[in-house]
């Protein structure tokens, strides 16, 4: 559906994308993850044809019509939901009877049927994003591009939004979505980590996790600061992060499972041995490591 080869985009001296090779097949639900400024929005704009590459190529499959949900709400806040959709249909020359029927059906699906007469500006954050989704789907695209559609949206609306995305995916729509939430990335068929304009890892969740080269330990302790101070003296640990009520420790490059013993020994008297255990890495661990390796 989408094929990028050596894709580069520069804005003056700033390289937003620095040689991205990526194929996204028809029917995929592909998640693009990466820090702010990684190049995600630039990638979406290139796919949507709003920008042209500085070097390399980006091809969309023939006849691959698309809808884009941009990161910023781009509908008219002083128009109602129905007026926004009507305007959108006219811009894209969707016959009005068809557009009206489709808008009604889509609004029903996202649970917004009762809100047609409400001003877009008076919608909650979650509903604004649902409206943007409906607008993007009005033209019956084969490819749906979503640039951080759930950022800042409340948890319940996020869940509802993903239920709809999953349905659309099952109906055959190809979806490319970026997100800062790692739990959402797990719903994708494949995901890609973008950082500083480079794609650092691509694959299924299991592939990406299996390639993670470091041991991760979890420590349960109410005295998080005490644990952090003790761990500062253990060279085999190169990252300590708070994960809710737990601490996640990452073993330095080249360390294996023997790190468990050194951490247990280092925390003697503070944390019982069974409060320290090896755990499988999460996508967030992958993400943080990718960021560290680029930085150094």
């Amino acid at each position: 559906m989408i094929e990028a080869r050596g894709l580069e985009k520069r804005f003056g001296a700033h390289a937003a994308l620095r040689g991205v090779d990526l194929r996204i097949a028809e029917g995929e639900l592909f998640a693009l993850i990466g820090p702010d400024g990684a190049g995600k929005t630039t990638f979406f704009r290139l796919v949507a044809g709003l920008l042209t590459p500085t070097a390399g190529t980006l091809r969309r499959a023939e006849g691959a019509t698309f809808g884009l949900v941009p990161q910023r709400f781009s509908l008219y806040e002083d128009l109602t939901v129905d007026e926004n959709l009507d305007l959108r249909a006219r811009l894209y020359s969707v016959p009005s009877a068809e557009a009206r029927a489709r808008a009604a059906e889509l609004l029903r699906r996202v649970g917004m049927a009762p809100f047609g007469a409400r001003l877009a500006g008076a919608l909650s954050g979650g509903m604004k994003q649902k409206l943007a989704l409906v607008a993007a789907l009005l033209t019956k695209p084969r490819l749906l591009l979503l640039d951080e559609p759930t950022t800042g949206v409340d948890p319940v609306s996020r869940r509802e939004f993903w239920l709809v995305l999953n349905e659309l995916h099952h109906e055959g729509l190809t979806i490319v979505v970026s997100t800062p939430y790692m739990d959402e990335a797990e719903y994708a068929t494949r995901l890609g980590f973008l950082d500083e304009g480079k794609l650092l890892a691509v694959g299924t969740r299991d592939e990406v996790l299996a390639a993670f080269p470091r041991p991760i330990l979890e420590v349960l302790s109410p005295d998080r600061n005490g644990v952090r101070r003790r761990l500062a003296g253990i060279d085999a640990v190169d990252d300590v992060s708070l994960f809710g009520t737990r601490l996640h420790l990452r073993g330095a490059a080249g360390t294996g499972t023997e790190i468990l013993d050194s951490v247990r020994a280092g925390l003697t008297g503070l944390v019982p041995a069974d409060g320290v255990r090896l755990v499988p890495p999460t996508l967030e661990d992958v993400f943080v490591l990718a960021g560290d390796e680029v930085e150094t």
Partner: peptide, 21 residues
């Protein structure tokens, strides 16, 4: 931490915690 990636968010929270503690 709006718009900041997970790594940056973690670092920021450690700083906040140290300021309080």
């Amino acid at each position: 931490t709006g718009g900041v990636d997970p790594k940056g968010r973690r670092l920021f929270w450690e700083l906040i915690y140290d300021l309080a503690a």
